[in-house]
């Protein structure tokens, strides 16, 4: 099974070997042709001796085909389930009242979109997530960097931050409402708190785990403090930072729902509550689907924005990450 699909794992193992022992057989797996060649080689080892041209091109086209069938494979299950449910409701096996069929969900979305409601809710939620995320990331990065860089600050600051982290963030809601009112500020604050902790932890952990040996290289070239940060620490920390950002964003999306549950007149969370109170399951599912799409899209945006900076990584998933 593994052998048939050119799984990223295979490519990774292959290149890993090349790096370790002697002159690598196919060192760069970056250009498509080479990657295809590497695939062909990992698929069928005896083919090494007889790499005649038609063979290779045939494999190249089938590999190209597979690259598109890969994502399609992932869609098979949800689309299949949706289709099955649609047919079940259409055939009268279920009335689809509590679990509305896909067409009904889609119709609800279209209806909301036509009236301009949908974009209003999406913009409300997106702007909350965005401002909460930005505040959380800035604060998390700042405090994480301070705690990671200065031992004294870490001993002073970290225990308190860790204690605060142990508090379930939802527990802040009543306090935030009392302090900041029931409008936007308290919502953004809750999201920012959710984003802060993973970013703080990620940045601090990443700085603490920068390889001493690499830092020593910087020292032998007499880098000043700022140059050391710019030329050694920042690039070394970047991969972990991107992960922290993505985790933070995920929590931001989680907390926006909690924030919008605590009394909102617009936003996707409001659509959820409204759907529950007025008994409109299609609206609830529509909001959930939009959450999924927005969450995935924003995560993907971070991924593609940072991919060029992380091309150098030699990691198990490194090569498949960009695709």
């Amino acid at each position: 099974m593994r052998i048939e699909t050119p799984h990223p794992a295979l490519r990774a193992t292959f290149s890993h070997k090349g790096r370790r022992e002697g002159p690598p057989p196919t060192p760069t797996l970056q250009s498509p042709e080479r990657r295809v060649l590497a695939m062909a080689m990992s698929v069928e080892l005896p083919a090494l001796e007889r790499t005649d041209a038609p063979e290779v091109t045939a494999r190249a086209s089938s590999a190209r085909l597979r690259r598109y069938t890969g994502p399609a494979l992932g869609l098979l299950l949800p689309v299949g389930l949706a289709l099955a449910w649609e047919i079940a409701v259409w055939a009268g096996l279920s009335n689809g009242r509590l679990v509305p069929p896909p067409t009904k969900i889609f119709a609800t979305m279209v209806e909301l979109a036509k009236s301009g409601e949908l974009s209003r809710h999406i913009i409300a939620t997106l702007s909350r997530v965005a401002s909460g995320f930005v505040i959380g990331v800035v604060a998390g990065t700042l405090f994480g960097a301070i705690s990671g860089y200065w031992g004294l600050a870490r001993r002073l600051l970290d225990p308190t931050v860790q204690a605060l982290r142990a508090i379930p963030s939802i527990a802040w809601v009543p306090l935030f409402i009392l302090w900041l009112g029931i409008f936007e500020t308290s919502k953004v604050a809750l999201i920012a708190v959710g984003v802060f902790f993973p970013v703080y932890l990620g940045v601090m952990g990443a700085i603490l785990s920068v390889d001493r040996k690499i830092v020593e290289v910087g020292r032998t070239f007499r880098l000043s403090g700022p140059a050391m940060i710019r030329r050694i620490l920042l690039p070394a920390v970047l991969p972990a930072y991107v992960v922290a950002l993505r985790v933070g964003l995920g929590l931001g999306w989680m907390f926006v729902v909690a924030a919008e549950f605590m009394g909102a007149s617009e936003g996707l969370g409001y659509l959820l509550i409204d759907g529950q109170q007025l008994g409109k399951p299609a609206q609830i599912v529509a909001a959930i689907v939009i959450f999924a799409i927005l969450g995935k899209t924003t995560d993907w945006l971070i991924e593609i924005a940072t991919a060029p900076l992380l091309r150098w990584q030699d990691a198990f998933g490194g090569r498949s990450g960009a695709a």
Binding site: K213, V217, T220, R222, R231, L238, Q313, D314
Partner: peptide, 26 residues
């Protein structure tokens, strides 16, 4: 560390985010 003294370690200690040329020019 002094400008006139260079050191080579047991491991290459190349900076993985720089190309080979940029590593040499570090």
């Amino acid at each position: 560390p002094h400008a006139k003294i260079g050191i080579i370690f047991q491991e290459p200690r190349l900076l993985p985010w720089l190309s080979v040329a940029d590593n040499i020019g570090f």
